[in-house]
């Protein structure tokens, strides 16, 4: 009876990885890629399928910054707080985004449109300071450009 509830995609995924050692992180990656976060129901099912305690799965999810437990907003704003970006003023940019959207890092706006993430390094230090919205990279961003950039996404709605 329990088995009927299983998500078919998840079953397929688990089959693919089942025989490989140390598969948990890779399965979580695929779940997050698909859903944008790791839903609790899927963790529960995964725990049964892999015969791994739920606590073990949550232990891993909460250790790594990459995995999320909450659905992210429609657009993910990743502000680089790496050293190069920090030196070129990304702290000021962060304050500006926070004050415009009224959220802190790791939060989603009330309308669910933006999720703000302060990340470590996007690996394009030559363009510092860098803001990445979804997969679009904005380099050499200035404080007064932030409002314009964000409004583009708001207008799309």
């Amino acid at each position: 009876m329990e088995h009927k509830k299983l998500n078919p995609e998840l079953v397929e995924l688990v089959q693919k990885w089942k025989d490989k050692e140390g598969n948990l992180i890779m399965i979580l990656h695929e779940i997050q890629n698909h859903h944008g976060y790791v839903p609790r129901e899927l963790s529960l099912e995964l725990s049964k399928m892999l015969d791994v305690p739920l606590a073990r799965i949550y232990e891993v999810i909460t250790f790594y910054n990459y995995f999320k437990l909450e659905p992210p907003g429609k657009h993910r704003i990743a502000l680089c707080m790496g050293t190069a970006c920090y030196l070129r003023g990304s702290a000021v940019i962060l304050e500006e985004i926070k004050s415009i959207l009224g959220i802190q890092e790791g939060q989603t706006t009330k309308d669910g449109l933006f999720y703000l993430d302060a990340v470590r390094c996007l690996g394009c230090c030559g363009l510092a300071p860098v803001v990445m919205i979804d997969n679009k990279v904005y380099g050499k961003v200035k404080k007064n450009e932030i409002a314009d950039i964000l409004s583009k996404y708001i207008k799309e709605e």
Binding site: V60, Y64, R120
Partner: peptide, 20 residues
């Protein structure tokens, strides 16, 4: 999955093993 400490050899091994 975004953990700086995993650049350290023994931590990296734990991570490949699917653990913290």
């Amino acid at each position: 999955a975004g953990a700086f400490v995993c650049g350290e050899e023994t931590a990296l091994i734990s991570s490949i093993e699917g653990k913290r």
